[in-house]
């Protein structure tokens, strides 16, 4: 029994087990049968304790390779760690966690390669591990948060921000599909900003219909995709591609942001935090510094949203109360369908 064998065995048991249970929890949360529980105060310490116990058992296994019990101990403790690590992670952080779990599965395969002296496992395992790590890092950068920050769910204390009443009080303009159809009449350029709300309502086909309708009337339509919109990396892209919206119309944040100045109407469908101007204007906001889509630079903004409820960051969005914003309070799909029929009638 070489040192390589025992260390790699301990690692593959640890990582593999965390990945297995963590993935089940992630699946449950995405499917909605596991609700976000309140974050317990000692959770972080508990996770670290579990990790330390697992590492301790690993050391035992390395010192005494015949201690099979130590191996099973690692697997068991890591299984609990996987559950407790993922269960407390908030909805908007799921893309990062999924990419990370994917990366772990590669690292586990890689460790197994070291156990079995198998180069194929080592190579493919590290490829998968690297890809997952890069994706997690890209998404963390898009949210302006560190990886540890996401994993341990630390939000900056948010007692400095204005309350919802201060932000919205009397300034939110609700509108009807007929008025919006008039607003969209004869405009040159429309940018659609999809968010998680579109995914929940499965509104992508209605969005495609709206796009076709607007284009038939001579309007240029493009899509602004924020890197962390949705629950998976690239979530919006897949949904829109499913609805046959051409690939070239989907623009990334850095590409589309300068064009909002020349945009007549920005239509925000079920997105919230990724278009919150607080990120730029209020340095004490929990999302301060997070890159956002500058929809406010468009001449008018239409926000299709069910209510004024806050997004994952839990803060009010001054965009909804801005002078050039009108709200259409509806589920994304119903809102789109109403808008489409209003547009058809006005034509």
């Amino acid at each position: 029994m070489t040192l390589q064998f025992t260390i790699a065995t301990a690692l593959s048991g640890l990582i593999g087990s965390v990945t297995l249970t963590g993935s089940f929890i992630a699946y449950g949360k995405l499917e909605g049968f596991i609700k976000d529980p309140p974050r317990l105060p000692g959770q972080q310490a508990f996770n670290i304790l579990l990790l330390l116990v697992a590492i301790g058992l690993g050391v035992w296994l390395v010192i005494d390779p015949t201690a099979v019990l130590a191996y099973w101990g690692i697997v068991l403790v890591a299984a609990i760690l996987g559950v407790s690590l993922v269960i407390g992670i908030g909805g908007a952080d799921m893309p990062v966690v999924i990419a990370l779990l994917n990366s772990y599965s590669g690292l586990a395969a890689c460790a197994t390669g070291f156990v079995l002296n198998n180069t194929v496992l080592v190579i493919t395992g590290s490829l998968v591990g690297a890809s997952g790590l890069i994706l997690s890092a890209i998404m963390c950068r898009a949210m302006n948060r560190s990886l540890t920050n996401v994993l341990f769910g630390v939000w900056v204390a948010e007692d400095t921000g204005p309350s919802a009443d201060e932000v919205y009080g009397g300034k939110v303009k609700s509108s009807s599909p007929e008025e919006l159809a008039m607003l969209l009449d004869g405009v040159g350029r429309v940018v659609i900003v999809p968010g998680f709300g579109m995914a929940v309502a499965q509104a992508q086909h209605a969005v495609r219909e709206l796009t076709n309708l607007l284009e038939a009337r001579g309007t240029e339509v493009e899509f602004a995709i924020h890197p962390v919109a949705g629950r998976m990396p690239g979530h919006m892209n897949v949904l829109l591609a499913e609805a046959d919206i051409p690939y070239e119309k989907l623009k990334e944040m850095d590409e589309i942001n300068p064009t909002f100045e020349q945009t007549d109407v920005a239509i925000v469908i079920g997105a919230n935090d990724v278009v919150n101007p607080e990120a730029r204007t209020n340095p004490s906001s929990p999302i301060a510094g997070m890159p956002i889509l500058d929809v406010l630079h468009a001449r008018s903004v239409i926000v299709v949203k069910r209510s004024l409820s806050p997004g994952f960051a839990g803060i009010p969005n001054p965009l909804f109360a801005a002078d050039n914003t009108v709200m259409l309070f509806a589920d994304a799909k119903k809102g789109m369908l109403d808008l489409i029929s209003a547009l058809k009638e006005s034509a």
């Binding site: 994706l135 890209i138 990396p233 690239g234 979530h235």
Partner: peptide, 9 residues
């Protein structure tokens, strides 16, 4: 490209 990140994953 980020557009293909879901299929990549």
């Amino acid at each position: 490209p980020p557009t293909l990140h879901t299929p990549l994953m």
